[in-house]
Design a protein around this nucleic acid. Sequence first.
DNA 1: GTTGTGACTACCA
DNA 2: ATGGTAGCCACAA
Length: 104
Amino acid sequence: MQKKEDNIKQQIWQCVASVPKGKVVSYGRVARDCGYPSHARYVGTVLKQLPSDTTIPWHRVINGKGEIAFPEGTERYLEQRRRLENEGVVLNASGKLKLTEYEP
DNA sequence: GTTGTGACTACCA
DNA sequence: ATGGTAGCCACAA
């Protein structure tokens, strides 16, 4: 039997999974769309826990400034950028992305 | 029970 | 624009 709190993760997964290919959203945006406006940080925590073979497009989630959440040059940063470029999303000259709106 | 942490944000100097 | 601070809250020790 699952507790209520576990549903938060499930909803976050659901929200991230609903992000269309080629679009990117912020952690805060995901949290709000899930119905948890103050759980932006938790979104990141959940993504961190995802297994490497997950089908969830965690790489489409970035911070509110339009940047990848990791310091540039780290393995994680590079991997996320690689995954994005693989889907046609490319960073601009400032190393940023354009946050896109989408209708759930 | 408390404390520290974090893939965040909004606000302010 | 940039940097610091405060608020936020689930989770692990």
